[in-house]
Amino acid sequence: MIPFAYSKPTDVAGALQLAGPDSHFIAGGTNLLDLMKENVAQPQRLIDITGLPLREVTATASGGLSIGALVGNAELARHPRIEADYPLLAQAILAGASPQLRNMASSGGNLLQRTRCAYFYDSAVPCNKRAPGTGCPARSGLNRNHAILGASQHCVAVHPSDMCVALAALEATVQVQGPAGSRQIAFADFHRLPGEQPERDNTLADNELITAIELPAPRFAEHVHYLKVRDRASYAFALISVAAALRLEGERIGELRLALGGVAHKPWRDPALEARFQGQPATSATYTQIAQAMLSGAQPLAHNAFKVTLAHNAIIRALGQAQRRQGATA
């Protein structure tokens, strides 16, 4: 890593004041330090935000929950309110990384994880995301782990987070504060597709800081399932993951939420599709139709066509599991 200056402000205003074009906020550091060691990230100043008062999980006026950006991933997954009311989120968090990393990683930082694309990580080779304009060797190279939806000519990387897939399904809101004040970003608008600017993972403006993640009032505490398929039993990034949440009305789907991980540059969701299946029978035949619709636009690369089949099967499985499940966490 390159040398950097270090400072540790004690309030948000102080942190924002220190922020500049070559600075980076650091909390858990699990991804940022990794990237710095690979010379992928090269901040000249690290602003340690672990001294900021962003560690609370509090109830919101609308019956939801506000999660401070510094709440640790492990702590969040084991929070009684999360376990009881948002089990999908708990499951997703616990499917990611290792116990050590979950202890270290912060909630806000989890949203800012960068892709595991091997070309992005290896600063000796071209990559449009790391070095815009240098090309995308993954398109013609190794792309087994890459995107099947929403990719561009410039980038076929996928977002690596598990937690974010659940947050997408739960329609969380990201609270940010920046030089221009604070604002809220709907989760669907937080991460972006690569398009012409693969170097941009999300819609944060310069020097904006995530302060909290807000969950709406719980609507999916029972019939949920987070399904993650990976190359080994634990401690591996997802090939495909599915966050499935159902509200059942008798034998019909009252409400459906579905988000996919491992398929695109962001957690993949299709609210229109979800709405379309409202009122349909909660059967595997319906789930198959949902899977087909969800993946109808898939454009696999040379080595990842299997992901279309896998995602299809995983959606059906996850919805079936969600339907059978009764609120349990694990």
């Binding site: 270090y6 550091g29 672990t50 116990p99 990393l101 202890n103």
Partner: peptide, 18 residues
């Protein structure tokens, strides 16, 4: 892996200064 305030963490991804 070491214990930081009782929690297990990866010391390789922890800045000492923090």
């Amino acid at each position: 892996t070491v214990l930081r305030n009782g929690q297990r963490v990866n010391a390789c991804l922890t800045l000492a200064i923090m």
